[in-house]
Structures are given as structure tokens and as C-alpha cells.
């Protein structure tokens, strides 16, 4: 996907997210959970959110943590009631 760039050499990942799909409160909740493992920066990129993740411990796997971050964010979005059936 174009919205996800993982730079393993820099231990860094950049994610661009549409706020209609991933609202900011869900992102912030996820960020508070993952702040033990990642330095997280949330900024605006046009109408989208830009999330930059940096590893705190270089022994961790940035790719796996990024995907786990995305899954957790999605479950938060669902919990918030967006798209509840």
C-alpha cells in the first residue's frame, strides 16, 4: 500500500491515514498504548494524518510493530462505534 512506508535501516515507519477511515481519537489511544515501544509523532499532511513511528529499542522489529500498531488502531476504530453493524 502506498500509505505505508517502512524504513528498516532507519528503524522508522511512515503511515498516511485518511481521518474518515481512522479518526484521530482512535489513533491517539493507540499511540498511548504503543508509546512504551515506539516514539510516535502524529502530524497533518493535507487532509490526512501522517504518523511517524520510531523504534525505542533497536532490537525490536519495526515492521511487526507497525502492523500491530495498525491492527490495534483498527480495533479501536471499531470499538469507537464507527461502522458498527
Amino acid at each position: 500500500m502506498k500509505n505505508l512506508k517502512i524504513k528498516k535501516s532507519d528503524n522508522k515507519a511512515e503511515i498516511t491515514l485518511n481521518p474518515l477511515l481512522y479518526p484521530l481519537p482512535s489513533l491517539e489511544k493507540t499511540a498511548s498504548v504503543f508509546e512504551k515501544f515506539l516514539d510516535i509523532e502524529i502530524t497533518k499532511a493535507g487532509r490526512d494524518h501522517m504518523v511517524i513511528l520510531r523504534l525505542k529499542n533497536k532490537e525490536d522489529d519495526i515492521e511487526k510493530l507497525t502492523y500491530e500498531f495498525m491492527n490495534y488502531t483498527f480495533s479501536e476504530v471499531k470499538k469507537e462505534g464507527v461502522g458498527n453493524v
Binding site: 500509505n3 505505508l4 485518511n18 477511515l21 502492523y67 483498527f74 458498527n84 453493524v85
Partner: peptide, 20 residues
Amino acid sequence: LEVIYSAVYVFLDKAYVIID
């Protein structure tokens, strides 16, 4: 969107999910 979210939610255990 609500249907897509519900369907994706089923796969959270098996797969990593990104929506765009």
C-alpha cells in the same frame, strides 16, 4: 464502510490489516 469494517474485523487474528 460499516460492512467492510465488520468483515475486516473477523480477520484481525489471522492477518495484519490496513485500510486506505
